[in-house]
Simulated assay, not measured.
Amino acid sequence: MDDRLPRAERRRRTEARILDEARRLFAERGFERTTIRAVAAAAEIDPALVMQYFGSKQELFSKAVKVTPVLPEHAEPDEIVEHVLATIGLKMGELPQSTLAMMRSMLTHPEAAVSARESLNGQIDRIAGLVKTDDARLRAALVTSIMLGVTVGHQLLELDALREAEPEDIARVLRPALRALTITGQ
């Protein structure tokens, strides 16, 4: 570490290094098998420093898996569908470490499930705000669940049919179902 850097910059770099290593380890091992000591060793710092920056393993996990929303604020139903389908290429490719960490841990660790639920509920809220039906929240939850299922099937379960399919083919097959869920009156 360069001691000539301002203290705030050194701190920011250390925090980023801890988060990068935490994402990698949570993605590889899940929440239960990732330890503060392992994160510290990977980041080449003292474990006490990880605790100083993040306070707890749960807080480290929450920060490491935080995903920023990418859905536009205003969109028509067809735009919602195309936006959701545009993410298939990402879901079929190499996912960010934060996403893999969340997926591996959300079914086995209660705090990870809370983080996943908060993130998914945020996505549901954003989609529901764009869908103009009385049951918009249900429709948005179904769209989100479908995409989550496709991602889990491809990334974690490695289902042959999904692994062998081109993202464009998956999008083509899903498009009518997603349109039916997002267009008013259907």
Rank of each mutant, 00 (worst) to 15 (best):
M1L: 02
M1G: 04
D2Q: 01
L5D: 10
P6V: 00
A8E: 13
E9I: 00
R12K: 09
R13N: 03
E15D: 09
R17V: 02
E21Y: 01
A22V: 03
R23Y: 08
R24N: 08
F26E: 06
E28T: 02
E32G: 10
T34C: 03
I36K: 01
V39A: 00
A40K: 07
A41W: 01
A41S: 08
A43H: 10
E44A: 13
I45H: 07
D46P: 14
P47H: 05
Q52H: 15
F54W: 11
L60W: 03
S62P: 10
S62E: 00
V65K: 07
V65D: 02
V65E: 07
V70Y: 07
P72T: 00
P72Y: 06
P72L: 04
E73V: 05
H74D: 15
A75L: 08
D78E: 10
E82A: 09
H83P: 10
V84A: 02
L85K: 09
A86E: 04
I88F: 04
L90I: 15
M92R: 01
M92I: 11
E94T: 14
E94M: 11
P96R: 02
S98V: 03
H109G: 14
P110W: 09
P110R: 08
A113V: 11
A116S: 08
A116C: 11
A116E: 10
A116F: 10
S119E: 04
S119H: 10
N121E: 12
Q123A: 02
I124L: 06
D125K: 03
D125T: 05
R126I: 12
A128M: 11
K132H: 07
D134A: 12
D134T: 12
R137V: 14
R137G: 12
A141H: 00
A141Y: 11
T144A: 06
S145G: 14
S145P: 01
S145W: 02
V150P: 00
T151S: 01
V152M: 08
H154M: 13
Q155W: 12
L156W: 00
E158P: 05
L159H: 03
L162K: 01
R163Y: 10
A165W: 07
P167D: 00
R172A: 15
V173Y: 11
V173R: 11
A177H: 14
A180S: 05
L181T: 01
I183Y: 09
I183A: 10
T184N: 09
G185H: 00
Q186Y: 13
